[in-house]
Computed example of a mutant assay.
Amino acid sequence: MSSEHHPTTEWRSERQPIETPLFTDAETALHKTRDIVGRKWHPVLLYYLLQDGPLGFNELKERTDSISSKMLSESLSDLEDAELVTRELLNDQPLRVEYAISEQGQALGPVIEEMINWGIQEDK
């Protein structure tokens, strides 16, 4: 036996096996999750909405680091289509909308938190 450190083996020995519901394809689920949290701005927007929401378009734009209005609009639309964010029209003259995290989006809170914690640890 080698005395090399194997992080994968260590991870398996410290945790219980990942339980997936019967007839669930883990790879498909991971791809679906990646489609949301793997996009550049999606986790950032979800974070701000989880922490400070609901927020207007301009408030979100001010909080994010150099996102263009077009990219912000597309990202919010993607998150709305995925039913992770809700959009409420507050005023039509002048146009004012507010974005909030949905119940389904709140379920991603622990994932976003772990991403932040992982990023902090990797920075050390």
Rank of each mutant, 00 (worst) to 15 (best):
K40V: 09
R15C: 13
Y99L: 02
A100Q: 03
K70A: 09
R63M: 12
S69C: 04
T64R: 10
E74D: 10
L108V: 02
S75E: 11
S75G: 11
E19V: 12
I101V: 05
L90S: 06
R87C: 09
Q51W: 03
V44H: 11
L84Q: 03
V97Y: 04
E74H: 06
L50Y: 01
M71T: 12
D81F: 07
D78Q: 15
D35K: 12
G119I: 05
S13Q: 15
D78H: 15
P94L: 02
R96T: 14
S69A: 14
V44S: 13
M71H: 13
V97Q: 09
L108Y: 05
L76S: 04
E98Q: 12
T8K: 08
E114R: 13
K61C: 12
I120K: 01
P17W: 02
E10H: 03
M115D: 02
T33A: 14
P43E: 06
R39W: 04
D81W: 07
V97I: 10
E113G: 10
L76W: 02
A107Q: 14
G56H: 08
E59M: 03
Q51E: 15
M71D: 14
D81K: 13
S13W: 11
Y99D: 01
K32N: 05
Q51I: 11
S2T: 15
R96L: 10
R63Y: 01
G109W: 01
D52Y: 12
M1D: 12
T24A: 13
D25S: 03
S69F: 02
D25M: 00
P110Y: 03
P94A: 02
P54C: 07
